[in-house]
Nucleic acid binder design. Structure first.
Length: 713
DNA sequence: CGTTTACGTAGACTG
DNA sequence: TACGTAAACG
C-alpha cells in the first residue's frame, strides 16, 4: 500500500544509509543530490541504476553521464553485480553522447557526416595557419598572442557564452589591443573547421544542442528514448551542458544530478558552479538530498577539510562527518626548498612501504604538472616506481599525432590539417610544399583521387612519396579493421620516427600502445572518436600496480588513497600567482585545496617549501598557502624535526574567528532584499565581514555586511 | 633564390 | 614545446 514502504525494502537499496537510500530510491522527477566528498556518491548512483532496473525500467533507456567514460563503465560494472541487466544501461560522457547524436544526424545540420573530432593541439595548429595565411601578425611582434592563447580565449568565450571582446577583457585584458586580429583569427578558425569537416570539443556540445533545439522530432525522440537521466559531477558542467540536459529531459523531467558545489574545479574551462545552485529553480519541485556522511577519511582529516572549505562561497551548507573518529592529525612540513621537499616525501614514502603499505595506496598530489619535477628525479634515483597522471596527454604527443594523422585523412579526406602534418614528415617537405600539394588535393572527391593527385603533386617525388602512396592505398581498403590499419601505419612511421626523434625508443614504445587501443573496434571512425574523446590518462592507469601515484589535483578528482601527500602548499603555487588577483579564481583554488585534502583516507602530509627559485627573481621566500595559514590551531601537526622547518603562523585572532561564525544574520540559502539590487539569495559569507548574494536581476555580488543594508524577505 | 632544417632561447597550469 | 634566426640545401 504505502509506496514509500515498498521502496524501503527494495533489494537494490540494501546497504545504503538513509540519505543515500532516499536519493537512490526516488521514483522519478528532478532530483539534486548534494554529495560531499567521500559520501558514497558512486555507490548511490550504482544503486540508483539497479533500483530503476528492478522497478522495470528498460536498462537501455537509462542514460548515465559522467566525467570520463571510464567512470561510467566502472559504475555500470558495479551495477551489473547488483543486477546483470544493468549491463545494458547506456553510459558515457557528454562529449561522447553528442558525438553519437551528431554522427547519426549530421545531415540535419549540414555537417559532413565524416566529420573528425579535433583536440586542443589541432585547434591551435589551425589557428596558427589562419594567422600565417591572413598575415595577422606583423613580423617581429613579440606581444602578439600565441595560438594557444587565442584558442583559450575563443574556447572561454564559447564556454561561458561571452562575446569575444568580453572574454578578452575578462581573461586577457593585456590583449585588448589585438581585438581585431583575434576576431579575424576566430572567424578564420571557424571557417577552416567547417571547410574541413572538423569539430572541436566545444562544437560537439553546441552542435548537439542545435540539433535537439531546432529539430523537435529529434528532441522528442531522444527524450522519450532515455526515460531516466543520471548525471554525475554536475558542479562541473557548463551552461550548454545544462541546456542539453533540459532538452533531453524535456519529455519527462526524470533527471537526477549528483554533485558537490565545494568540489567545482573546472571554472577555467567554462564549468558553471551556478548550475548546481540553480537546479531547483530550473526544475521546480526538484527534490534535494544531501549526503554528508563520509566513508573515506578519518575525523582528523575531515576537521581540516571542513575548515578549509568553511569560508568558501558555497551555498549548500554541509558538514562532513564520519564514524572513523580520531585518526592521525594531518602533518604540515616546511622543508627549505623543492629538493628538501622531494627528499622528505621520498623518505616518508620509503618508510611507509617498509612498514607494509602498498605503493598503490600512496599518492602525491600537486597543483601543476611541473610541481612534481624534483620528486620525480628523486623517486627515479631511489628506484621507487611511480605513475604520473595529468599533464602529459598521450594523444597530444607529436609522434602519436603523426601516426594518427594518416588514419584521419582516410576517414575524412578533407582533413587538410592532417594532410599537412603527414606530408611534412616527408624529407624535403616543409610548410610550403605541403601547402601547394594540398591545394592540388582540394577538389578531389574520393580517396583514390587524392592518392593520384598526391603522387603527381608538384615538388613531391622520390622513394618516400612512393612509400606514402603505397601506405595510403593500403589504408584505403574498406574491409581492413582498425587494428590492421594501425599496424600498417606504425610499420610506415617507425623509420621516420627513428630518423626525426632523438628519443625514439620511448616514442616507439608509446606507438606500441596503439594496436591495443584499436583492437575491438570495428570501424575506423569509432576508433578515432574514442581516442579523441576519452581522456587518455586513464589508459596508463589501468595497468599500474605496485606503483605510487603522482597526480595533479584535477586528475585526482573522485579518487582516494590511504596515504596522501600534497606538494607546494604555498601562496604562488596553491593558489598559483595568477589566481591571487581574481576572487573567483581564488575560490576555485580553495576548492582545489579542499579536493586535495579530501582524497586522503588515513594519512595526510602537506608540504610547503620555505623558498623557491623564480625565473628573473632568484630565490624567493614562500608564504604558507593562505588556505592553511588562516586555519585555527590544532588541525595540523607541525613537527620541528627538520632544521629548515618553522612553526605555523600566528593563529587568527579570537575575534576574527568568532566573527566568521557568529555574525551571519542571514542563513545561507535564504532570500534577502537590497535597496538597489532587489531580491537575491544568500550564497555564503566571506571573511566574516562580507556577504555573497546572488541577485535575481544583477547576479552575484559581494557586499560589505556593515553597509549592505539587507532585509529578510 | 626560396625552402627546409638545425639550433638556441624564452616560456610554460589545471582537462 | 614553439618561435625566430641562420646555415644548408636543391
Amino acid at each position: 500500500m504505502n509506496r514509500a514502504s515498498d521502496d524501503l525494502f527494495s533489494p537494490a537499496l540494501d546497504g545504503l544509509n538513509p540519505a543515500q537510500r532516499l536519493a537512490a530510491g526516488q521514483r522519478g522527477g528532478p532530483v539534486l543530490v548534494i554529495a560531499g566528498a567521500g559520501s558514497g556518491k558512486t555507490r548511490t548512483l550504482v544503486h540508483r541504476v539497479a533500483y530503476l532496473v528492478e522497478r522495470g525500467v528498460d536498462p537501455s533507456r537509462i542514460l548515465l553521464l559522467t566525467f570520463t567514460r571510464k567512470a561510467a563503465q566502472e559504475m555500470l560494472n558495479r551495477a551489473r553485480e547488483l543486477n546483470p541487466q544493468c549491463a545494458r544501461v547506456e553510459g558515457g560522457t557528454f562529449h561522447s553522447l553528442c558525438y553519437r547524436l551528431l554522427r547519426a544526424h549530421a545531415s540535419r545540420l549540414g555537417l559532413n557526416r565524416q566529420f573528425t573530432v579535433i583536440d586542443r593541439g589541432d585547434c591551435e595548429q589551425l589557428i596558427r595557419g589562419v594567422i600565417n595565411e591572413q598575415k595577422l601578425k606583423t613580423k617581429g611582434d613579440r606581444q602578439f598572442p600565441k595560438a594557444r592563447t587565442i584558442n583559450d580565449i575563443i574556447s572561454k568565450s564559447r564556454n561561458q557564452e561571452l562575446a569575444l571582446e568580453d572574454a578578452i577583457e575578462q581573461w586577457a585584458g593585456h590583449l585588448l589591443g589585438y581585438m581585431e586580429e583575434i576576431n579575424k583569427a576566430a572567424q578564420g578558425f571557424a571557417a577552416a573547421k567547417r571547410a574541413q569537416g572538423l569539430v572541436d570539443y566545444d562544437d560537439l556540445l553546441f552542435l548537439a544542442e542545435e540539433l535537439l533545439r531546432d529539430h523537435d522530432d529529434l528532441r522528442q525522440r531522444f527524450s522519450q528514448h532515455w526515460q531516466h537521466l543520471l548525471v554525475d559531477e554536475y558542479q562541473d558542467t557548463n551552461a550548454v551542458q545544462a541546456r542539453l540536459l533540459k532538452l533531453l529531459a524535456s519529455e519527462h523531467d526524470n533527471l537526477m544530478v549528483v554533485g558537490d558545489d565545494a568540489q567545482s574545479i573546472y571554472r577555467f574551462r567554462g564549468a558553471r558552479v551556478q548550475n548546481i545552485f540553480e537546479f531547483p529553480q530550473d526544475y521546480p519541485g526538484a527534490k534535494v538530498v544531501k549526503l554528508e556522511q563520509n566513508y573515506r577519511s578519518t575525523q582528523a582529516i575531515l576537521d581540516l577539510s571542513n575548515e578549509v572549505i568553511a569560508q568558501a562561497w558555497h551555498r549548500y551548507d554541509k558538514k562532513l562527518f564520519t564514524e572513523r573518529l580520531g585518526g592521525k592529525r594531518p602533518v604540515l612540513r616546511r622543508p627549505r626548498d623543492d629538493r628538501g621537499q622531494a627528499r622528505l616525501v621520498s623518505e616518508r614514502i620509503a618508510e611507509l612501504i617498509t612498514a607494509g603499505n602498498k605503493p598503490e595506496d600512496i599518492a602525491v598530489l600537486f597543483r601543476a604538472s611541473r610541481d612534481s619535477y624534483e620528486l620525480e628525479l628523486e623517486l627515479t634515483a631511489g628506484r621507487v616506481p611511480f605513475v604520473k597522471v595529468g599533464g602529459f596527454r598521450f594523444l597530444e604527443a607529436s609522434h602519436i599525432k603523426d601516426a594518427l594523422s594518416h588514419l584521419r585523412v582516410i576517414s575524412n579526406p578533407s582533413d587538410f590539417l592532417s594532410w599537412q602534418r603527414l606530408l611534412m614528415l616527408l624529407p624535403g617537405v616543409g610548410p610550403k610544399k605541403a601547402q601547394t600539394a594540398i591545394s592540388h588535393l582540394v577538389d578531389a572527391e574520393s580517396p583514390e583521387l587524392y592518392l593520384g593527385r598526391l603522387a603527381s603533386a608538384p615538388g613531391l617525388a622520390g622513394a618516400a612519396v612512393e612509400r606514402l602512396v603505397e601506405l595510403m592505398s593500403e589504408l584505403s581498403d574498406p574491409s581492413a579493421t582498425p587494428l590492421t590499419l594501425v599496424e600498417a601505419v606504425i610499420d610506415y612511421y617507425e623509420p621516420i620516427c627513428r630518423e626525426t626523434h632523438e628519443d625514439y625508443p620511448r616514442r616507439l614504445r608509446d606507438l606500441e600502445e596503439l594496436p591495443g587501443l584499436a583492437r575491438g573496434f570495428s570501424t575506423l571512425a569509432e576508433f578515432m572518436a574514442e581516442v579523441v574523446l576519452e581522456p587518455p590518462n586513464s589508459y596508463a592507469a589501468e595497468t599500474q600496480g605496485g606503483r605510487i601515484t603522482l597526480s595533479t589535483v584535477h586528475s585526482a578528482k573522485g579518487l582516494e588513497w590511504p596515504n596522501v601527500f600534497i606538494l607546494w602548499a604555498t601562496d604562488g603555487r596553491l593558489p598559483p600567482q595568477m589566481a591571487l588577483m581574481d576572487p573567483e579564481s581564488l575560490e576555485e583554488e580553495r576548492r582545489l585545496m579542499y579536493v586535495a585534502c579530501t582524497r586522503a583516507a588515513g594519512e595526510l602530509t602537506i608540504l610547503a617549501p620555505m623558498e623557491s627559485y623564480q625565473r628573473g627573481r632568484g630565490v624567493v621566500n614562500n608564504e604558507l598557502s593562505r588556505f592553511l595559514a588562516e586555519l585555527p590551531h590544532g588541525l595540523l601537526d607541525n613537527p620541528r624535526e627538520n632544521v629548515f622547518e618553522v612553526p605555523l603562523p600566528q593563529a587568527p585572532t579570537p575575534q576574527s574567528r568568532g566573527s566568521q561564525h557568529q555574525d551571519r544574520p542571514f542563513p545561507v540559502g535564504s532570500m534577502v532584499e537590497h535597496n538597489t539590487f532587489g531580491k537575491g539569495r544568500v550564497m555564503g559569507y566571506k571573511g566574516g565581514k562580507k556577504i555573497l548574494v546572488h541577485f535575481e536581476r544583477h547576479g552575484l555580488k559581494i557586499l560589505l555586511l556593515e553597509f549592505a543594508n539587507l532585509n529578510k524577505v
